[in-house]
Design a protein around this nucleic acid. Structure first.
Lengths: 349, 349
DNA sequence: CTGAAAGCGCTTACAG
DNA sequence: CTGAAAGCGCTTACAG
């Protein structure tokens, strides 16, 4: 592998000049720069990242800890993030080091990764309220960015969607169609995003003057069978009055709800309106549902670009306050939502 | 962060001695070693990996390229491998850098990763026959290990299961139960493992003197719906004589076959024997099937230990010939296989 | 048993 | 505009 010294020797220049030429310093003579660049090209020069990193004190590597959950939806999401993130980081000359969390203590895997001593920072995901990882990393001055933050009142970089707005938009859309009995199949409420959505749902329902029976809110790991089972229970009437509309935390859950509707011979949207939040997972596209699914939409993969940039900018010294992005999900009305059945029309009777 | 120099200054020793003490060189005085180790502990010393790597010429990082396939089974498998691999690599003080392959050319992502200049080697997976990545990496002298190799006649390190033996064992077990019409729902034959299994299936059937109608072999990305659809087609009799036993390339496929059997009111194993190869994915355990599934079994996660060690040993200079592991899957007879229906008993008539 | 020195391949003040 | 030198934090022959 050619080094700066090799190029310098070849051209009768010092390594300092070669380094400057290659790094585009303005003071180097234009002809010198050209000669250096051509020689570098010809000799197949590649900078030794390790050496660069030793002197700059940066490793060019960031870490992410993934938690195994036996749930397809989180795996699809993880793949999507992995795709977007590795591309976005590579554009900033940064590598992603992964580890799998199998521990109980939330900070242990971070500590273990840090001890290996080669990380500039972390990408955190799946925040919980008062996430213990935040305090731990902040106490040690380790840069990080939080993915999925939806509360803007924090002092660290994050990227997330406004989950309260998601629920306000969803409830608003259904209420405008006349629905008053709206159910919500949420994700796991121990996660911040789901807690925020639950709060958002309650607030939006209250704002519309609508009641929220306990049976209308469920929460679990996203999965088709969860959606199916809960929808079946709610729609069978076993749990009390039946909802005329269901909001799902994800398209995976919506797939289960749709199946339950089919099994109960309910037509969507005539008998039941269904909508979901859509992370744009390629395996389960809202547009392929039958009928096509009304959603609030915020793609995961694209989100990885600002996510990666926030982290690297923060490592570069940009203040956290300037690295906080809260985006509003897009509302896309398709064919799974419609007016409430007349007079609370009950197709079972 | 404390350095060797800090410890040396503290103790009145040279960095060389401190380095030797910490690295367990035999020549250092026992008391000196103790003092150094205590000081290192007290001062929270962590070796700077970057500096170590600059001088040793090793980065302590290996790469893996994952290919996105919109198929749950490959995602479950990937998670399983990620879990085992990061743990096994960490035990050898090595980090895993991941990238996602979205290109057409199979070597492009490897080239791109290599250009970033910080990898000691690669873990390859999902080999195809005459895999172009092999020649490309060998031409450049880049160490790698192949996961899923099942042909031992190669000159590079690998870990894999003997796929021909898998089929010989499966066919042998069913033939011993009297089955003569055995179908095989294979994976994608463009992948080496599936090509090997197909060859193994044909050879094993021939050895038993059994015919293999074209309709009895299918091949596709593993998935429940594939298993369901193909089993339904075969068992309906539309494609000719019906099989009395089905071998599945994975438990995911077997889940689809079981569902098809249920929908056709066929009892397993009375009317149909079902078996599968089992990668021991925690999300879909053979023991949770009803009836419990007879399998050939070779866990993915455990396989990552020898896989990681082979690669690192190879980077350390161990000859490829000593780093080739071909294991035989275990045959586990459970309740989904039984004697062939009497006289080729046909439950449909 | 320990130390002084060279070196891994870069970057970057400091001189000229 | 270019070069000589110091330095990033280690490892490891080479002396003593």
């Amino acid at each position: 592998m050619a080094t700066l010294k090799d190029i310098g020797t070849e051209l009768g220049l010092s390594v300092a000049t070669v380094s400057r030429a290659l790094n585009g310093f303005p003071e180097v003579n234009a002809r010198t720069r050209d000669r250096v660049q051509q020689a570098a090209e010809r000799m197949g020069y590649r900078p030794n990242r390790i050496a660069q990193r030793l002197v700059t004190g940066r490793s060019g590597m960031v870490g992410m800890i993934v938690k195994i959950r036996p749930d397809m939806s989180s795996e699809m999401t993880f793949f999507e993030i992995l795709t977007g993130l590795t591309a976005a980081l590579a554009a900033r000359d940064t590598d992603l080091v992964l580890a799998v969390d199998q521990a109980d203590d939330p900070v242990v895997p971070y500590q273990r990764m840090l001890e290996r001593g080669i990380l500039d920072g972390f990408i955190l995901n799946a925040p919980v309220p008062d996430d213990p990882r935040v305090a731990w990393l902040q106490a040690r001055g380790i840069p990080f960015v939080m993915h999925g933050q939806s509360d803007a009142q924090v002092d660290y970089p994050f990227y997330g969607i406004d989950n309260r707005a998601v629920m306000a938009d969803s409830v608003g859309l259904l209420a405008a169609l006349g629905h008053r009995r709206i159910a919500f199949l949420n994700g796991e409420v121990r996660l911040a995003f789901a807690a925020d959505r639950r709060a958002g749902f309650r607030a939006a329902m209250a704002a519309e003057g609508l009641a929220v029976p306990e049976a209308f809110i469920a929460s679990d790991q996203p999965g088709e069978s969860y959606g199916y089972a809960r929808a079946l229970a709610m729609l069978s009437g076993r749990l009390g009055p039946r909802p005329t509309a269901v909001i799902c935390a994800s398209t995976v859950i919506a797939a289960g709800v749709m199946q339950a509707a089919r099994d109960l011979a309910l037509a969507v949207p005539r008998d039941l309106s269904v909508m979901a939040h859509d992370d744009a997972l390629p395996q389960l596209r809202a547009i392929n549902f039958s009928p096509t699914l009304t959603v609030t939409r915020a793609p995961m993969r694209e989100a990885c670009v600002p996510l990666a940039n926030h982290l690297i900018d923060h490592i570069d010294g940009v203040a956290a306050a300037r690295l906080q992005t809260l985006i509003r999900a897009e509302v896309i009305v398709r064919n799974s939502t419609g007016p409430v059945p007349e007079g609370g029309h009950d197709p079972w009777h």
